[in-house]
Design a protein around this nucleic acid. Structure first.
Lengths: 165, 165
DNA sequence: CCATGATGTAACCACATCTGTTACACCACT
DNA sequence: AGTGGTGTAACAGATGTGGTTACATCATGG
């Protein structure tokens, strides 16, 4: 199977919340986040709910409602996001226990699980080296390099929303 | 979903082939490998077929039939086995393309894909540091530490098979 | 104190993938 | 030719994923 896209969607959502917050736009609403991601608002709420349980974001009800970061974006890493939204291991052991009458089958599980733990640590290290702030900044830089109007339009729409409110 | 067990099964199978080869038992047959793994022989043949395409093992037909390693066990790494049996990426990007009208959505995909490539490299490095020979040796050591008779029984059964032939 | 707008969550669907299984063609040695 | 095992297609059950609808819940504004 190809891996799931939860980390991608969650990172996208958090980056969006961070950007709106930085521009003084206040809490982000699942509907607008979902529009940027091109998915259903419930998908966003599901993932942000998990991120909230992990202490990365906070949901607000009433007025204004929406989501805000609970920590600055430079104190949230992709490692945090991954563990918030995806509790699975990369590699699984045998589905059915191997034969305990075989010198390989008797112990290969415990040996492999140690190897897999080392891999998990390597993944955590790689993801832990990238913060949400970095990802957002690189993304904005790259967008501005070819389509600088996007960020301006985004800021304008925030202002329009504020004025109409 | 929790990750698949292909790497585990394939490593188990290759280790079994290596052990039988080291003890002079000749090619290993999918039926006996499947018995050690406690799965169906077709599952073993499927994965070993992929390993054969990657140049790790070789299948023999006729008499004696079965599978042998194509390289010494200390020249096969878990990285080789992973790429032989599993061509998927760990993390997927968005299923539907994000909005290109948003400064985040427009570029976040390319930024994340670079992060994911770094993760893939980290995983490859971690798996590339472990050879099949090491895994087999550690497994046998561990089995011998608590059940030394397993390896003896294994060698005996190989002799019995040879004598009856 | 009600109306509003958004969160929180259950329930369900379509779809893909994984593992296991049966079946059978094919092949090389005896 | 017979035998034993590989190679592979085809199918089934279980499970995970993403999308969708529906609705209860909640905090604020009027």
């Amino acid at each position: 199977m190809s891996g799931n896209s939860r980390l991608t969607i969650a990172t996208h959502a958090l980056a969006w919340i961070a950007l709106k917050g930085q521009l003084g736009g206040g809490p982000a609403v699942s509907d607008e986040i979902a529009h940027s991601i091109q998915t259903n608002p419930v998908v966003v709420r599901r993932l942000l709910g998990a991120a909230q349980a992990a202490g990365l974001v906070e949901s607000h009800r009433g007025t204004p409602a929406g989501w805000t970061l609970k920590r600055p974006a430079d104190q949230i890493t992709m490692r945090d996001i991954r563990h918030a939204v995806d509790h699975d291991e990369l590699f699984a052991l045998h589905k059915s226990t191997p034969s305990s009458d075989c010198p390989v089958g008797y112990s290969v599980g415990s040996v492999l699980s140690e190897t897999y733990e080392a891999v998990e640590r390597a993944v955590d290290d790689a993801l832990g080296a990238v913060t949400l702030a970095q990802t957002l900044q690189t993304t904005l830089d790259r967008s501005n390099a070819t389509k600088p109007e996007l960020l301006q339009n985004f800021a304008d729409s925030l202002d329009a929303g504020k004025r109409s409110r």
